[in-house]
């Protein structure tokens, strides 16, 4: 049994709930090293995604992710908009018109999402960005995809993303607004890595 459009909609719904629940936490993380709008922007973006999903229910997982991409790019406002927008768009393209996602396709779509973030933001591992959550996540996904169990792939990705977010604490920011702070960015967790881990945890939760 793979993942269908029901999973995609549950994933986005759980993501929207996570952004609403962690809105203040993400704002607090963003305050010392950014412009303290990440929680606000993500919450607004995913609320808009919920509205769009209600207006026009998608028929495939790919269609759901494409709708999410366009909505986030338009509504988020900050850097997270084009970054997550590109991630969801590349994942949607990788899924194509499939209505039943197997483990290998899932790992490929997650890889496409990470590659989209890298292409758009030009950040590398260790730059203290969401890439530091996504790269371990796709590595964990690729390592577990061989077993053919989509739930296992999603759980491995979520756990790796969470560890990846924690790993940004001692990093010196080299991309985004935090990079203007130089040494002072050390000791703070990257809010984009945290929201990425929340979104990947939601993907796993939606498959349970």
């Amino acid at each position: 049994m793979g993942l269908d459009v029901g999973w995609a909609v549950r994933w986005l719904t759980l993501s929207a709930q996570a952004m609403a629940e962690h809105r203040v936490e993400l704002i607090e993380l963003d305050r010392p090293i950014g412009d303290s709008d990440h929680g606000e922007n993500m919450d607004r973006g995913f609320k808009a995604v919920m509205d769009k999903l209600a207006e026009a229910p998608p028929e495939t997982p790919g269609a759901a992710l494409k709708l999410t991409a366009m909505t986030l790019m338009s509504k988020v406002g900050g850097a997270a908009g084009p970054l997550y927008g590109t991630a969801f768009l590349r994942a949607a393209t990788a899924l194509g018109s499939t209505s039943d996602i197997d483990a290998a396709t899932l790992a490929t779509a997650l890889q496409a999402a990470r590659d989209g973030i890298v292409a758009r933001g030009k950040a590398e591992s260790g730059d203290k960005t969401m890439v530091d959550a996504w790269t371990p996540a796709i590595e964990a996904a690729a390592a577990t995809a061989g077993d053919g169990d989509v739930r296992k792939v999603l759980l491995a990705a979520a756990e790796a993303a969470e560890a990846g977010a924690v790993s940004t604490d001692p990093m010196l920011a080299r991309k985004g607004r935090a990079s203007y702070l130089g040494e002072r960015s050390i000791g703070h967790r990257d809010p984009g890595a945290v929201s990425s881990a929340l979104i990947l945890r939601a993907a796993a939760g939606a498959a349970e």
Binding site: G78, A79, G81, P82, L83, G85, T86, R120, G121, K175
Partner: peptide, 11 residues
């Protein structure tokens, strides 16, 4: 201007 303006323009 700043970072995300570049990314939005590229998108």
């Amino acid at each position: 201007d700043l970072g995300s303006a570049v990314m939005t323009a590229e998108s």
